[in-house]
């Protein structure tokens, strides 16, 4: 427990200073030795997470969200090692604005990677219950419902949808059917398999008052408890926050579109206006690297500034 607490404190210091590169490795490496022995065979690889592109947003906080997404794509394409794939953790569009899904798809065609995996955000599904989103991205997901899992070089990836019944309690929600699927999906895996979960709304209670939590996340995390390394990647709150709980590391990601206030620091979670000169210091992307024999995944957030 001491190790986890130290890891958490280091992480909070890291969040406070905004220095991401070295300390991000520090948080994770505090658990590296313990888990190295459990690392399964598999090659090194890296992947990228982008989130909350909000194409269609035209507010004061960022008048050109297509430009900042373009900059994020340029960063991805300039990485020294081509990412195996890209995860988009939702809110592709801003409120399902007409043409927004097409615009996102067109822009992401230029990403140099094998594939982009998606989970929806509430902005992508609230108007039509996910009809348009699933018509585009439901193919190959479980029952066409948007959630899915896949394996890559010994790492098990699970994409979860927690915005379909978002309205239930004012929080994200996975629902009984998806939970049942998740339990079954991970049952066959050895406990030494590294697991990466990606979803939109946080799976830990960041700030329930603003809906920054998932009401049945405890149940999902219960199914993942036995695994030596679980990394949870999400978006929704447009800022980097981290938490380590047992073997589970939670990482919320920056948006490429606009920042949001720190939990509870403003009257509402509306877009944070920081001025054109500063906004790129709060927008960005995330690279995650898995190094064979080195245990947990290294998560590195970088801004567009």
């Amino acid at each position: 427990m001491d190790m986890d607490r130290r890891g958490f404190l280091e992480c909070m210091a890291w969040v406070g200073t905004g220095v991401v590169w070295t300390a991000a490795g520090g948080v994770l490496s505090s658990r590296t030795l313990a888990q190295a022995a459990e690392t399964p065979a598999g090659g090194d690889f890296g992947f990228v997470q982008i989130s909350d592109t909000h194409i269609g947003f035209k507010g004061e906080a960022n008048k050109d969200v297509a430009a900042t997404l373009g900059e994020a794509i340029a960063r991805i394409n300039a990485l020294p090692t081509r990412p195996a794939f890209v995860l988009h953790t939702g809110d592709l569009t801003h409120a399902q604005k007409p043409g927004a899904f097409d615009a996102v798809a067109e822009m992401l065609k230029s990403v140099k990677t094998e594939r982009v995996f998606y989970v929806p955000g509430e902005n992508d599904v609230f108007l039509d219950g996910g009809k348009d989103y699933l018509a585009r991205y439901g193919k190959g997901t479980v029952g066409g419902k948007g959630w899915q899992s896949f394996d890559h070089r010994g790492v098990h990836f699970v994409g979860l949808v927690n915005v379909e019944s978002y309205k239930a309690k004012g929080l994200g929600s996975l629902g009984a059917e998806q939970l049942e699927w998740l339990e079954d999906d991970v049952r066959k895996l050895s406990s030494s398999t590294p697991v990466v979960v990606f979803t939109h709304v946080p799976l830990w209670a960041v700030y329930a008052k603003w809906g920054w939590a998932t009401d049945d996340s405890e149940q999902a995390l219960g199914y993942l408890k036995r695994f030596g390394s679980v990394t949870v990647l999400n978006g929704h709150i447009h800022q980097v926050l981290q938490k380590v709980e047992g073997n589970v590391a939670f990482h919320t990601a920056m948006s490429t579109a606009f920042p949001q206030p720190a939990p509870g620091s403003a009257p509402s979670p509306g877009p944070l206006k920081v001025g054109d000169d500063r906004v790129r210091t709060l927008l960005g992307l995330r690279e995650v690297r898995y190094i064979q024999g080195r245990g947990p995944l290294a998560v590195v957030d970088s801004t567009l500034a």
Partner: peptide, 10 residues
């Protein structure tokens, strides 16, 4: 009623 985008608004 609530806001479907911000369901904490009730």
């Amino acid at each position: 009623y609530f806001c479907a985008l911000h369901p904490q608004m009730r």
